[in-house]
Design a binder for these strands. Sequence first.
DNA 1: TCAAAAGTGTTTGGGTTACACCCATGG
DNA 2: CCATGGGTGTAACCCAAACACTTTTGA
Lengths: 229, 229
Amino acid sequence: MSTTNLAGANATPPNRHAMPFVRIELAVLTVTDGRLAVLLGRRAAAPQQGQWALPGGVLRIDLDRDLEAAAQRVAMERLQVPLPFLSQLRATGGPQRDPRAPWALSIAYRALLRFEAFTPSPGKRLEALQWTPADAATTDLALAFDHADLVRIAVDTTRAEIDRLDLPDGFLPDCFTLSELQASCEAILGRRLDKSSFRRRLDDHHVVEPIPGAMRTGAFRPAQLYRKR
Amino acid sequence: MSTTNLAGANATPPNRHAMPFVRIELAVLTVTDGRLAVLLGRRAAAPQQGQWALPGGVLRIDLDRDLEAAAQRVAMERLQVPLPFLSQLRATGGPQRDPRAPWALSIAYRALLRFEAFTPSPGKRLEALQWTPADAATTDLALAFDHADLVRIAVDTTRAEIDRLDLPDGFLPDCFTLSELQASCEAILGRRLDKSSFRRRLDDHHVVEPIPGAMRTGAFRPAQLYRKR
DNA sequence: TCAAAAGTGTTTGGGTTACACCCATGG
DNA sequence: CCATGGGTGTAACCCAAACACTTTTGA
């Protein structure tokens, strides 16, 4: 034990070494057309021009208060809309990931949003945006960089959360019927759920609460409206 | 498939923006003295000289093949031993995290290792190393930077893995008795487990298999030896 | 033969599935 | 009155906890 490093605070000047190219990538998921879908952007410029990829951008240390704020700024730039309810997925890095830099590090974030409440439009460096069914995105399309891995991780963690009824914020409207909620969960998971078990589980875990007096009326019997928690 | 990367393609020259100071932090856990413990290093130099912190170091894009390799190199430098079986915990970043740089980003890794098979010694920039009970580390000691949060995350995810019998590599010897395994799990979780349920769960999940003919003899009745999977 | 550790049932309960059934409404 | 979706009840099952029990060894 020991060897004091002389206090000469002059230990390592931090910027003695080159730092990697640090980016944020966004895996934005939604439910549309009865399935889980991921938002892909077509790259307007090299590298990988014309390829589909997750929207992303460079970390700006002069602008971003933290990583999540960086992700939100990137969302504004690429998707032209705010992006609430982010959760961090993972970081990946290496020398071969991006031809623009000798070493590229990406922090991936995920959001799960309501289709109706989120209408992005292609911002800087994107020719187009498109919702792609989640399972097709990881298999059929050849996504740029290592984004297929990131989509897979986003989808898997999201399905796991839904499985244990840990419902992410952002994909539920303020009020909804239990059947609507069940349909959303089924779309995300890609399989049918049993109505009775689903409802029992919901209230064992205190996931939702009825809104007193609020009912959805429609063609048939009115349905109780609920809110989260 | 891919478009060639025209060197000058007027995409963004990546280094137009300053990049953050990128570090790796290591949360190395073990079981000793019947409890889960985390390896802390006493910082030899400013900032936070003399404070206890997770061992860590700067990402070196000239040396590291990827983030995990970076973590292994940092382990060699700080702990003087290799550090296998790493898993990524999370990334955190912001302008106030480290006075050495205007913006600091850390990627935290975790390892769970056998106490007997891992004897680190303080390397560069560390005065001392010490195993500290995991729960005390997050409460009693005032760890440097935001490392208390990282320890908490490391401990929580590790306990969750053990709970679901998703036993990380690296903390089991090649062969062991079921009682030894149970004792390790109890130490990590901080609570007693029922022998019978534990064993039934082990073989329902096919976590371990008996090594034919191998027995541990000792003071009392010999015990069957097992290996992982 | 006894202490100590290895190892094996057996009962109970919580939680989930599967499935059947009733209720309310607009047409 | 009936089609349709909202809503509830019940039995079976799976898993794990709790706890009691038998087995094998060295001293």
